[in-house]
Lab assay of single mutants.
Amino acid sequence: MSIQHFRVALIPFFAAFCLPVFAHPETLVKVKDAEDQLGARVGYIELDLNSGKILESFRPEERFPMMSTFKVLLCGAVLSRVDAGQEQLGRRIHYSQNDLVEYSPVTEKHLTDGMTVRELCSAAITMSDNTAANLLLTTIGGPKELTAFLHNMGDHVTRLDRWEPELNEAIPNDERDTTMPAAMATTLRKLLTGELLTLASRQQLIDWMEADKVAGPLLRSALPAGWFIADKSGAGERGSRGIIAALGPDGKPSRIVVIYTTGSQATMDERNRQIAEIGASLIKHW
Rank of each mutant, 00 (worst) to 15 (best):
K30S: 09
V31L: 12
K32R: 15
D33C: 11
E35Y: 00
E35Q: 08
Q37F: 14
L38H: 07
G39L: 11
R41I: 09
R41G: 05
V42C: 05
V42E: 03
G43A: 08
G43P: 01
Y44F: 11
Y44V: 06
E46C: 05
L47E: 06
S51D: 15
S51K: 09
K53D: 15
K53W: 09
I54L: 12
L55V: 12
F58W: 15
F58Q: 09
P60F: 08
R63V: 07
P65G: 02
T69Q: 04
T69S: 06
V72G: 02
L73K: 00
L73V: 14
L73N: 04
A77T: 10
V78Q: 04
S80E: 15
V82L: 06
D83I: 04
A84T: 12
G85A: 11
G85P: 01
G85T: 07
Q86I: 14
E87K: 03
E87L: 12
Q88A: 14
Y95R: 00
N98S: 14
E102Y: 15
P105G: 06
V106C: 09
T107W: 01
H110L: 09
H110Y: 15
H110F: 14
T116S: 13
V117S: 03
L120E: 01
A123W: 02
A124W: 01
M127F: 10
M127G: 06
S128N: 01
D129I: 00
T131C: 09
T131G: 12
A132N: 02
N134E: 02
L135I: 12
L137Q: 05
T138D: 15
T139G: 11
I140R: 03
K144Q: 13
E145K: 14
T147K: 08
T147P: 04
F149Q: 08
F149M: 12
L150G: 05
L150F: 12
L150H: 05
H151Q: 15
N152C: 11
G154C: 06
G154K: 07
H156R: 12
T158Y: 02
L160E: 04
D161V: 06
P165L: 09
L167R: 01
E169I: 10
I171Y: 15
I171M: 15
N173Q: 13
N173Y: 13
D174Y: 03
E175V: 13
R176Y: 08
R176H: 08
D177E: 03
T179E: 00
M180Y: 11
M180N: 15
A183V: 14
A183K: 10
M184C: 05
K190T: 15
L191E: 00
L191N: 02
T193E: 10
T193V: 13
E195K: 11
L196H: 14
L197P: 04
L197E: 03
T198L: 09
T198C: 11
L199C: 15
A200N: 14
A200I: 11
R202K: 13
Q204M: 13
L205I: 10
D207E: 15
D207H: 13
E210N: 09
D212G: 07
D212K: 05
V214G: 05
G216K: 08
P217L: 09
L219D: 01
S221F: 08
A222G: 10
A222P: 10
L223I: 14
P224C: 05
P224N: 05
P224Y: 04
A225T: 11
A225Y: 13
G226C: 08
W227N: 03
D231N: 05
D231F: 01
S233Y: 00
G234R: 00
G234C: 05
G236F: 02
R238H: 15
G239F: 05
R241H: 06
G242W: 00
G242E: 00
I244C: 09
I244N: 00
A245D: 00
A246L: 15
L247I: 15
G248D: 02
G248E: 05
G251E: 14
P253W: 08
P253I: 10
S254T: 14
S254R: 14
S254Y: 09
I256F: 07
I259V: 12
T262F: 08
T267W: 06
M268C: 07
D269K: 10
E270T: 13
R273I: 11
R273F: 10
Q274W: 13
I275Y: 06
I275E: 02
I275R: 02
A276M: 11
A280P: 02
S281E: 14
K284R: 13
H285F: 11
W286M: 06
W286F: 09
W286T: 03
